[in-house]
């Protein structure tokens, strides 16, 4: 299971690099969406690994409500982009 977690950290690095190198805001939003999902699933895996189910509840809660800010951000960025272009 530890190996699984290390592999997950490797997968988490890919969107981080993407967020670092790409200047386009939508590509960064994609990276953000990917990171948000990946960290929540990693929290679940850690909960199983440590056999601590309180952390598991936290992971499920973050998974089920955490993406709302992302959607709001996407809509507002779209509106601002439209306004910038006139």
């Amino acid at each position: 299971m530890t190996l699984v977690l290390i592999a997950m950290i490797g997968a988490l690095l890919i969107p981080m690099v993407e967020a670092l190198q790409d200047e386009d805001i939508w590509q960064r939003m994609l990276a953000f969406a990917s990171i948000a999902t990946k960290t929540s699933v990693m929290i679940l895996v850690i909960a199983v690994l440590q056999d601590d189910w309180m952390i598991g509840v936290v992971g499920v809660l973050i998974l089920s409500v955490g993406n709302a800010a992302l959607m709001l951000l996407a809509h507002i960025i779209k509106r601002v982009d439209d306004a910038m272009e006139g």
Partner: peptide, 24 residues
């Protein structure tokens, strides 16, 4: 706006570390 996206990434990673350290 770019900084806000980054803030989201920072928040997600911070939550992961806190959960890993046992602070649910």
């Amino acid at each position: 706006y770019q900084a806000l996206v980054m803030r989201g990434i920072l928040g997600a990673i911070a939550a992961l570390i806190y959960a890993m350290m046992g602070g649910g």
